[in-house]
Simulated scan of single mutants.
Amino acid sequence: MITGANTGLGFETAKLLAEHGATVILACRNADKAADAAARITASVPDSTVRTLRLDLASSASIRDAAERLRADYSRLDLLINNAGGIRPRYAVTEDGFESTFATNHLGPFAFTGLILDLLLAVPGSRVVTVSSIGHRRGTIHFDDLHFTRGYRYADSYFQSKLANLVFTYELHRRLAAAGASTIAVAAHPGNARTEFGREMPLPVRVLMRPQFRLLTWWLIQSPQKGALAAVRAAVDPEARGGEYYGPPGRAQFTGYPARVESTAASHDTAAQRRLWRESERLTGITYPILGKPAVLGS
């Protein structure tokens, strides 16, 4: 299953996995766009099996409904790629009262992963891959104001959420290892990839993302096909281990074929990992399962 798989990196990830024989579930907010993406993949890969699931990570109701529908149709899941993400140039809150970027990029994936984790635990060697960003290096987790109620800066919100992706991955890895599970948690980042992600960004960013500028920006921005390879490597490389992080190598980590890379010291802060986990449980009402038992959904 790949979240946000109707376009960009998620679509390219799904297409590549389908080309190699995986049954792929596209979990997307817009059902029509998901169906169109599935049709494009099956047209390109005629023997593939591609299904869709409506999932809005900014809505706790949608997350619960999607988890219930998935559990009704499947008894096991080999791979979950938490790819969906977004950024809001202007402040917005979800129907649950959470700042939209933080909800979509962290709280939603945290809740959905928890609700379906037992489907992954049923499969030896299954994986949870969460897509972060080089932007995490500029991130701070604002525990005193996670939802930016005292002043919103879209970049700070996005960087916080991408740091949270890594903090979540490392804490999930620790908990899975402590429970003796063979399921692992791995993180990845695409570098700078030319996708629709920047469509709501300031004009200079939108201009640089245009395909006609690719010859000028080859060193700065890579194709979505190449950007997707980091998540795919984290998902299928037999040498990958829990708690690892994959992305384009090099000092800037903008472009290139994926390798194991390092994240910031802030992402490895064990106190922050535990604190964010507790806060995420409190905000979402989701307590992760012990081996073999479903997640607990709070009030």
Score class of each variant (00 low, 15 high):
residue 175 R to L: 12
residue 153 R to D: 15
residue 103 A to Y: 08
residue 102 F to P: 01
residue 150 R to T: 14
residue 127 R to V: 10
residue 150 R to C: 00
residue 145 D to Q: 03
residue 96 D to C: 07
residue 112 F to K: 01
residue 152 Y to Q: 03
residue 108 G to S: 02
residue 110 F to Q: 01
residue 175 R to A: 12
residue 163 L to A: 03
residue 96 D to V: 12
residue 92 A to W: 05
residue 94 T to P: 01
residue 171 E to F: 09
residue 102 F to G: 05
residue 92 A to T: 12
residue 89 P to H: 03
residue 95 E to G: 15
residue 161 S to E: 06
residue 186 V to Q: 04
residue 178 A to S: 13
residue 181 A to P: 08
residue 139 G to C: 11
residue 89 P to E: 09
residue 172 L to T: 11
residue 150 R to W: 00
residue 138 R to H: 12
residue 94 T to E: 00
residue 165 N to C: 13
residue 156 D to G: 01
residue 186 V to G: 02
residue 129 V to L: 04
residue 133 S to H: 10
residue 97 G to V: 12
residue 184 I to R: 14
residue 104 T to H: 03
residue 140 T to H: 13
residue 142 H to F: 13
residue 107 L to P: 02
residue 135 G to P: 03
residue 151 G to C: 09
residue 154 Y to F: 15
residue 138 R to K: 12
residue 121 L to A: 12
residue 124 P to G: 09
residue 170 Y to E: 09
residue 161 S to A: 14
residue 164 A to Y: 05
residue 155 A to E: 13
residue 166 L to Y: 04
residue 181 A to G: 05
residue 182 S to A: 11
residue 164 A to I: 07
residue 142 H to P: 00
residue 126 S to I: 11
residue 94 T to L: 01
residue 105 N to F: 10
residue 94 T to H: 01
residue 156 D to T: 05
residue 109 P to T: 04
residue 111 A to P: 05
residue 116 I to K: 03
residue 154 Y to H: 13
residue 140 T to C: 02
residue 96 D to W: 04
residue 185 A to W: 08
residue 100 S to K: 08
residue 141 I to R: 02
residue 142 H to V: 06
residue 102 F to W: 15
residue 163 L to W: 08
residue 161 S to F: 09
residue 88 R to I: 01
residue 182 S to E: 14
residue 88 R to F: 14
residue 133 S to N: 11
residue 128 V to G: 02
residue 112 F to R: 02
residue 174 R to K: 13
residue 150 R to M: 00
residue 150 R to N: 14
residue 186 V to I: 15
residue 97 G to N: 11
residue 183 T to S: 07
residue 133 S to C: 09
residue 178 A to L: 12
residue 173 H to A: 15
residue 146 L to M: 09
residue 160 Q to Y: 09
residue 148 F to V: 02
residue 97 G to S: 11
